[in-house]
Design a protein around this nucleic acid. Sequence first.
DNA 1: TATGAATGAGTCTTCATTCAT
DNA 2: AATGAATGAAGACTCATTCAT
Lengths: 200, 200, 200, 200
Amino acid sequence: MINEIREPKQKRSIEKKERIIDAGWKLISTGGYYNTNTAEIAKEAGVSTGIVYQYFKDKHDILIAGLSKYGSEVFYPVLKLDNIKLDKNNIIVMISDMIDSYIDEHNISKDVHAEIMAMVHVDDEVASFFYNREIDLTNELYNIFLDIGINEDKLLEKVHIIIGLIDNLCHEVVYHKHTEMNYKSMKEIVIEIIKNLILN
Amino acid sequence: MINEIREPKQKRSIEKKERIIDAGWKLISTGGYYNTNTAEIAKEAGVSTGIVYQYFKDKHDILIAGLSKYGSEVFYPVLKLDNIKLDKNNIIVMISDMIDSYIDEHNISKDVHAEIMAMVHVDDEVASFFYNREIDLTNELYNIFLDIGINEDKLLEKVHIIIGLIDNLCHEVVYHKHTEMNYKSMKEIVIEIIKNLILN
Amino acid sequence: MINEIREPKQKRSIEKKERIIDAGWKLISTGGYYNTNTAEIAKEAGVSTGIVYQYFKDKHDILIAGLSKYGSEVFYPVLKLDNIKLDKNNIIVMISDMIDSYIDEHNISKDVHAEIMAMVHVDDEVASFFYNREIDLTNELYNIFLDIGINEDKLLEKVHIIIGLIDNLCHEVVYHKHTEMNYKSMKEIVIEIIKNLILN
Amino acid sequence: MINEIREPKQKRSIEKKERIIDAGWKLISTGGYYNTNTAEIAKEAGVSTGIVYQYFKDKHDILIAGLSKYGSEVFYPVLKLDNIKLDKNNIIVMISDMIDSYIDEHNISKDVHAEIMAMVHVDDEVASFFYNREIDLTNELYNIFLDIGINEDKLLEKVHIIIGLIDNLCHEVVYHKHTEMNYKSMKEIVIEIIKNLILN
DNA sequence: TATGAATGAGTCTTCATTCAT
DNA sequence: AATGAATGAAGACTCATTCAT
């Protein structure tokens, strides 16, 4: 018995597949992979449970599809500003904007972020997604810096540190675990560090 | 209905409880919470399934017990050196040692770290463990810095950034995602940043 | 988590649900609630264990469904004759018929009666079923008596006593514990008592 | 391996066995047989779980032992007045006293009564207990009536009906399901019925 | 294509009973 | 005689996946 996964060509089919992805992503990122069952996903998508398995190999496949579709939006959205013209002088502004946009980003529902990250460590494919994404980001930022004439020395390492700093800062802001922490100061410190890293 | 969890006093019982914790921790941290079942844990511990529920309320309880026992070893083991005498002059050495010990730490099986972190986002109790641990660490380091005369200004924010830097560095080293990255350089940069943060 | 109990509309589904109810009722009333497991019920119904939980919340729910379906048949079936026209003169005949029909009733498998009654004292919902049923019956008979002009004085009490007498008699006949007892005489005595109660 | 049930001769052992019976009876009659586990019984009795199985074959055996010890107290305690001298003239007073004592009886915790009765229908041995007890009672009352010169005609049937009436009345009083019922009237009616049965 | 009913293996948990001490 | 730790079979329930329609 054949059980190929259909790659839908027709418009209606495509829409249906998208609805399943969206529903799966929404529920999984809200409630967690193991707490979401396929019946729920189907219902949320407004389709039957059976049809799910014509578009996706299994439940896991839905997660991966959601990741491909939305992963980039939710995680490391840092470089959305990459078409901005940059030079050494406005680099600080750029960093500041990056941080702000990251934080403001509508899609960073805390929960979405958290739940999906959970899968990173459990699921090789998910892990691989982030692995690649992080590498891409690092390289992209690396190239940007090169283009605007930043000193090449130890630049890859610096870029990695910079991304970590921003991520850590944003994470802290979004989840504000430390009640007594002053985020404005923190951001200033981070930017100062980055400036020193880049310009020296 | 009786359902008291026994707090074993006798030596053999204590050992058995420990064996269950260890088995649970090993399997869960290797294969993930949802992919580990209680029968496997019992078998790994060399006990019957029934006995597990005399020592633990439920499966989740085993995870938490493992976390309490090993969580501190595996995560943020940064401050193990806390009984070392510190002064401003050797602080850089201290930071360097921290990093080295963190990385060398036998228990940092990559998997352990990864799998458990996965639970943070799915399980409130696990999350709370890390939440508290991170806060404790921050405060501890904060106090150490105060004691050795570091400038109090924005110190909390700086400490948080420092911990993030170290964690990020170590994470990178352990998982060495970026093949072309020079970890020695990276460590130097991180230490340099920390030095500047503290001493200015 | 989805856990809606399906209320089947399609004919086949309805049949299946009925089969489960019947199987559950049969096994529970034969062997007792705690000695019947869901796998057996499913097997007896010719369905898988899983499907049971799409039609019923839990095992207990099956019992209640059986009770709703068959409870009225098995217990206090006294008033099945309620569409018979009554007057003071044929009331004795009516009582006699009641008793006969109760006893003849095919469905009064002794076991069914016994096993289910067992649940009355253990299960609130089952108890409530009989509680209500008994009250309904009492009121119904009360109204019938009123309609045909029976003296209202202490009538409720009398009705309760009458139902008790009939139930006790029938019970004795069905279970015939006392080998030396003459049921014909017993029935005559009961009817005589009832006649006196009503007509004085 | 031998596993005889010990019949304890020593005083301390006997006490222990009694404690287990009492604990079992208390818990089972309060919470039901299937909701009471042996660990609870042992704990309530202040003994270890293991020792239970030296005095009793199994859990069921504890129930039966409790039944033997307390069954007569709780059920049909009607004839406790059997050493009272009776004659035809005070028989009505006697019946009235029976009913009162039945109702007043400390041991008729509603729950005890109910829970144990539940077992009647599930457990052959329990059923047999009540079966025999009811027969004994019937015979005993039968003989008393004979002794005081009651007409022998259909007496066995009458006695059975009388016991049923009293039981039904008492049951109603204890559980008072019908809020609008006047128990004083009900009792009067029952006594009147009994008087007529006996004296005619 | 689509439905949603059906499957049944798998999971956690309980508890009567046994056994080492 | 006694303890209470240990056993492991059994049971209720879930859910990813398949199948009849």
